[in-house]
């Protein structure tokens, strides 16, 4: 059976970059750390001696490694876990693994377009929460809103983005308000 070359592995990992980073985010809750973890996964994939024979093996290894690195990071920062059940993490990783790289890529591409069409204030709220790492309480303070109102708005934004992505992937053309 032929094995994947370094270039094949690199291409596959880059196609699945957002999903692998997302798996790390579910553990760490920090988008910057998740990006670092993804890079470490790539380095490890290219320097390890074991070869991969199927696409699924590369991605399965990558998701497991990303999660382990996330757990290591939590431990280094004095936390045992983020509260997410390992079984749940397994099931979510499975849903990423069962999706082909092409389908996942299309969904992420649609998501980028949807994010770019968000109203400024909505985008700013998500930026503070996920890029700048503020918790919802701090976001609420900044926007002079109640905590519950921020949770409502952020959750509504997530739901709208999901609908937007599904619509775009299904070529229905619905955009977030």
């Amino acid at each position: 059976m032929s094995t994947f070359s370094e270039q094949d592995v690199l291409r596959l990992l880059m196609q699945s970059r957002d999903r692998i980073s997302a798996a790390a985010w579910l553990v760490t809750g920090d988008t910057q750390v998740s990006e670092d973890i993804f890079q470490n996964v790539v380095v490890k994939a290219l320097t390890r001696e074991v070869s991969f024979e199927v696409e699924g093996a590369v991605l399965s290894w990558a998701f497991i490694t990303a999660r382990r690195e996330g757990i290591d990071w939590l431990r280094r920062h004095g936390r045992e876990s983020n509260g997410l059940d390992p079984v749940v993490l397994d099931l979510v990783s499975q849903s990423w693994l069962t999706e082909s790289a092409r389908d996942g890529g299309e969904r992420v591409s649609a998501l980028r377009e949807c994010l770019d069409r968000l109203p400024d204030e909505s985008r700013q709220m998500l930026r503070m929460r996920y890029y700048e790492g503020y918790n919802c309480g701090e976001v609420a303070e900044t926007f002079r809103l109640g905590l519950n109102a921020v949770y409502k708005r952020v959750s509504r934004l997530h739901a709208q983005l999901r609908q937007c992505v599904e619509s775009r992937v299904g070529r229905m053309g619905v955009e977030p308000s």
Binding site: D18, S21, L111, R112
Partner: peptide
């Protein structure tokens, strides 16, 4: 899964 993807893609 979607929340996680949205967070990292936005970042």
């Amino acid at each position: 899964r979607d929340i996680a993807e949205q967070a990292v893609v936005l970042a």
